[in-house]
Design a protein around this nucleic acid. Structure first.
Lengths: 235, 235
DNA sequence: CGCGTGCTTGAAATACATCAACGATAGTGG
DNA sequence: CCACTATCGTTGATGTATTTCAAGCACGCG
């Protein structure tokens, strides 16, 4: 059964593509369901496909030779991922794990050259995506190198809430389950330190925690923390 | 006067380009000299050109809103840099400063679409470059997040020596002037810590320091440090 | 020769990790 | 439906790697 182009029309990845282009892209794609906590692909595995997330949230994890894990990013619905091929790589540089049940489109790498020539807008958007990720990653290096843990966690939380926030009666909450350990792996610290800081912020009415849940109740106050601009009396 | 294609033939950036392609690329380029400690372009400045380093060494520096500096990378002869345009950016994300006197080729951004269509190999190689930098940057995030300062500095030194090493009678030395402060800005630490560790390594006969100079005399021992595999008695 | 820039090295301070123990939550299976 | 268990979270006490503060030194350029 053919996939309907309304699935992907309007996504940034296909900005500027006309209907024919969308059809050309879709006819080569295959959609599949990925259960929570299941790998879409594994680090160092042969990169046979590239992907688009239709719904859900995916965690991209790099494991160091020593076995330490770092979360490179979270993928939101509408984003491309596993696009190693477009950078001339033959293996995936990280693992991708479904944070919740997901639906993904996948293309075999072999169709990339064809798509590239037939749908230039898609090609350009893909490179833009990579460029953005390079920017973000370099910004992260600056952050880790120059700021202390408290600011890093605050920034990370603000980013998560901005990119994947869900409005609730009491504030904005991160739209997928996330543990203290996950936050630690995004910020280069330990779950203990994350837990302590979240508890402190909870006392100050900035956030509200929960098992695999973070709800930001006072985004403005959190911004002040991120920029280290609170008065000492606030602590 | 036209530039000679022997200048750039054989560079990885032009792998697979035939003579006509090289001419097409070169005829649009302009070469210029950049004095030591001079900026090639400035962070947040409008990205009007992209560049290729013909000779010398260039330091790419990102400055955070708070004024902290981080060295994103060093560019060696033969590498492309300032390629913001290819990622859909209109400003440079970092500054580029000549670490020594340099010779660079530059192209106005406006020729990119033309080059892209007429020299596909050049285009593909450019994207490969960006992909490699994304990989490296992500690896750096993992390193900063999981390893301690000593290992990070050791790794960084090994990388510098590998990419820009110059063989001497007593070992391999970094081929351009680099201060302790520079090394600190590459590893997310302070010049004091760098200085202390280099001094300690000098006592152990692993490196030899000097004003704006580092000479690695025992790369193997430095590797053991990088992997934290020394016996305690070594310290 | 003097001055700026880079380097060294001690002593004190601290942010954060580590160690350790316990408490809470949610899913599972009887 | 409730007990069981795995996973996740909290929080105190202790330890330490690294920064910060401070001072003096050395190299090389004009």
């Amino acid at each position: 059964m053919a996939l309907d182009k309304t699935l992907i029309a309007g996504l940034p990845a296909f900005a500027g593509c006309d209907d024919d282009a969308l059809d050309a892209v879709l006819v080569q794609a295959r959609s599949s369901h990925v259960a929570k906590d299941t790998e879409v692909f594994a680090q160092d595995g042969e990169a046979k496909f590239f992907f688009l997330l239709l719904s859900g949230h995916i965690r991209v994890v790099r494991t160091s030779p020593e076995g330490d894990q770092v979360i490179a990013r979270y993928i939101n619905a509408g984003e491309l991922f596993g696009i190693a091929i477009t950078m001339g790589r033959s293996t995936y540089p990280a693992s991708a794990i479904a944070a919740v049940d997901c639906v993904v489109l996948s293309w075999p790498n072999s169709v990339w050259p064809d798509l590239q020539s037939r749908v230039p807008a898609f090609e350009a958007n893909t490179y833009k995506t990579i460029g953005n990720r390079l920017q973000e990653t370099q910004a992260r290096v600056v952050e880790i190198s120059t700021q202390q843990v408290e600011q890093r966690i605050a920034h990370t939380l603000l980013r998560l809430v901005k990119q994947s926030g869900r409005k609730t009666a009491d504030g904005i909450e991160i739209a997928f389950p996330i543990t203290r350990q996950d936050i630690a792996e995004m910020t280069g610290t330990t779950l203990h330190t994350v837990s302590r800081l979240l508890s402190a912020w909870e006392d100050q009415g900035i956030v509200r925690g929960g098992r695999q849940k973070v709800l930001v109740t006072d985004a403005h106050a959190l911004m002040l923390v991120a920029e280290n601009r609170r008065k000492n009396s606030d602590r």
